[in-house]
Design a binder for these strands. Structure first.
Lengths: 164, 164
DNA sequence: TATTGTTATACTCTATAACTATA
DNA sequence: TATAGTTATAGAGTATAACAATA
């Protein structure tokens, strides 16, 4: 996963249909090296894997965490509002909330002002749980810091501030 | 998508089960703001969407592009080698190659040295096509530059260089 | 025994469309 | 008519397991 070992100058060529047996580090990425999207994608995969592992004991994934956090900070939001804010399809949010509601972390309350919509709230249990999730998420964030460095992580957050 | 408008200091509170009608910009992200993973994920989604759109006419997605680029730069690689290098499951690469082979961009040649494996090559058509794909991918990269700034894009590539 | 490519299954995620009940 | 929540479906993508051919 760390990659980028010294690139051998003289590259082995394929000979009449024999598959090349080489180390992963020897394989050049060519144009991919210049694409931000490639690096960002690989980094995002690493970061999600660490998040899932760090919050493995409480069985919370990144999307679930983002939904709980936003509901916790904005009690009473409708499903549409949460979906729009987080860029989740409203159809997908239905299933996410079904699961979180079954786990007694979230409750849907029928809105009186607009009977089509639901006001979303954390349960008391959900509040307590979220506090723990945030502690674990902060631990995950420290892993990120260890991986890319404190200053780099902060610079990254600055660069990408517009995408939140 | 740009987000981060001025945050109203006094936040509207939910009142007895009425879903809050508010603008997306008013919804606070709370702890998510401090998580690199959240920003990286949103950025990655933006970047992939732009890539897919920019290469829409040639119908090439990011993963397909990465496979073609690596085969182009390292002709004769086995499927295992490509899968490992790009972090793709070998089972998934099978389907990706099926599709690229049907489109006559790639060919699998039975290896003589190890008859279990296939040596991967671009077809002549594949070489020509890849040149065009690279031109379009460079155009996409300029969109990224416009979005976050030239200096920020370069800094980002530096920070994430270890993940390629 | 282990590895390469393959097939198959399951679950997550994205993208739609259509339905219902409301507005 | 339009919107909120729901249901359903299809296609990517990820994660496994198992199998045949070969090493």
């Amino acid at each position: 996963m760390t990659a980028s070992a010294a690139q051998t100058p003289q590259r082995k060529r394929a000979v009449n249909g024999a598959a090349r047996r080489i180390d992963t580090d020897e394989i050049g990425l060519d144009a991919l090296v210049g694409h931000a999207g490639y690096a960002v994608r690989r980094f995002q995969i690493w970061i999600f894997q660490d998040f899932i592992k760090t919050l493995g004991d409480v069985d919370i994934r990144p999307t679930q965490y983002s939904v709980l956090t936003v509901i916790g900070a904005n009690p009473g939001l409708s499903q549409m509002a949460v979906a729009k804010r987080l860029g989740i399809e409203r159809a997908r949010l239905v299933h996410l909330l079904d699961s979180l509601e079954q786990r007694k972390l979230v409750k849907r309350i029928k809105s009186k002002s607009d009977r089509r919509s639901h006001a979303l709230h954390l349960t008391a249990q959900g509040e307590t749980a979220l506090t723990k999730f945030k502690r674990l998420a902060a631990e995950h964030e420290r892993h990120v810091e260890e991986k890319i460095g404190k200053a780099n992580r902060e610079r990254l957050l600055q660069i990408l501030a517009g995408f939140t």
